[in-house]
Write a protein that binds this DNA or RNA. Sequence first.
RNA 1: GGCCUAUUGGUGAAACGGUUUAACACAUCGCCCUCUCAAGGCGACAUUCACGGGUUCGAAUCCCGUAUAGGUCACCA
Length: 543
Amino acid sequence: MNKIEELAKLICPNVTLTINDLEKKYPARNLPTDAKVTRFAPSPTGFLHTGSLFASFVASKFAHDSNGVFYLRIEDTDTKREVKGSIETVVKQLGLFDINIDEGYSIGGIYGPYIQSERSFIYDTVIYEMILKGLAYPCFCTQEELDKIREVQMANKERPGYYGKYAKCRNLTVEEAIEKIKNNVPYVVRFKSNGNFLNHIDFHDEIRGDLKLSENDLDIVIRKSDGLPTYHFAHACDDHFMHTNYVIRGEEWLPSAPIHVQLFNALNFELPHYAHLPVIMKNDNGNRRKLSKRLDPEASVTYFIEQGYPTSALLIYLCTIANSNYEEYRLANPDSKISDFKLSFDKFSLDGALFDLEKINNISKDVIFKTPINELVSSIKEWASSYDSKLLSLINTDKDMFAKIMSFGKNDPQPRKDYYKFAEIYDHICYMYKDTYDELACEELPYDETLISTSCKLFKNDLSLYKPNKDDWFNHQKEIARSIGFANNKKDMKENGFTYMFSEYMSIIRVALTKRKNAFDLVDIIDTIGIDEAIRRLNNFIK
RNA sequence: GGCCUAUUGGUGAAACGGUUUAACACAUCGCCCUCUCAAGGCGACAUUCACGGGUUCGAAUCCCGUAUAGGUCACCA
């Protein structure tokens, strides 16, 4: 065994395979030529970020639009930032948003393992050969030494980083390296870059087009001292052996693309296509900044789940951010599904969109209104059982009544669109139920008591004639209200000297029946609570 | 600071050198409908495309500068 082999063996003692073996173990996928293989590769550092949902949505859509494969890979190489249980949360939340995974973590597949902490045998196999070929070397610099180098570079106004003359471990002899490792000196493995920063490489991005980027000359770390790979290296190995052909990721990766290009070239791996997605932004007092988990509740997908947004509403919104022509498509094809629309790279905006909750609310209202009543009721019930116990108890007191309330105006020529999220429902409907009505505080009316009680009595006495035909009934009410001084309309009021309008009469009755100035259609309300209950409420109110 | 990317109303944006006195959608504001609310209908809302130069018969569209914003420069992804 020569010295370089000894070094390689020391760095990767458990290697039994060669890169060639790996190529055979992970053969090319048998797919049509234009099929896209994409992936979502989250780090388990918490719940699903809205930006990650966007990236995974786009990646899965491109795969599925082309009859390709969308897989899930867990990038858990940063043990310090790992949050226990977050993998399960992310997988669950992807499922809730109908992001269908074809392969990968939690499902399996022949290109596994799909979790990076279990892929060391692959990384080490590659590193072993890189050492032999002189493409990688161990670096024993301590954090302090690296900080020192940076300081010097800053002082000299030079580019910071481990390159050129600053890459001192590059020049260590094999013997020296072996010696240090045998003495248990901690070390990382670095890629030996042959790049020149002054050179430019041509880089094609599917979204951004042709770019010229500076060549990488940094000897980046590919394996950390804990033995785990860094992102850059894992990206090259994993996306190669898993045969990803479209790498769809956030814009923040664009500056490191030259590193990836160089790595793929050095390893003789075929370069995938890249698409760098614009980052979703947030307006913060007139300034744009990244949507932040810490500052913006809507940056976490959990927010939308807890508030009871239909998941498709968020997806529709994200789809319009991705390709703004989707909005027009949806207008022209109101009954289409997202899957009917094909996303295209050249329709992407290059600038990060400002996240617009108002627009989501608008979309959501429409989605909720279009959901068939049975489906709606059962998803509201399911949501309420986790997030809204007050609403759940209303539903449970009378399920049919709840379904009836939720379908108010649904079949009218001008249908109602009352809610954009389930968390709004309780407050809209609570007065419909006897017990909650009794506990409710009553809104004030700007009329004297005599007028109020006269109106209520008149209305109550007339209730026996109640017929649930809206037009007839309201016309009839107009007549009787007029008899105690409420004009039919503005014209009537002016011409005949009335002080009050019919709408004011109705608002007195409305408050009596619901304790609210704003409520549903009165006919619907009486129809639902029943005449007896209506009379009871009126009597209580008159008192 | 270096490198990269972007810049059309409050927001998402269309526009691919002339049919643009800038589409569509959200928001906002009016009016209409109306038992209130919601919904719906109608209308208003950029004379101008960050700014300054150029090219052209003609520029939001092409070129060059400037400004501004964002990303990135880790043993984090």
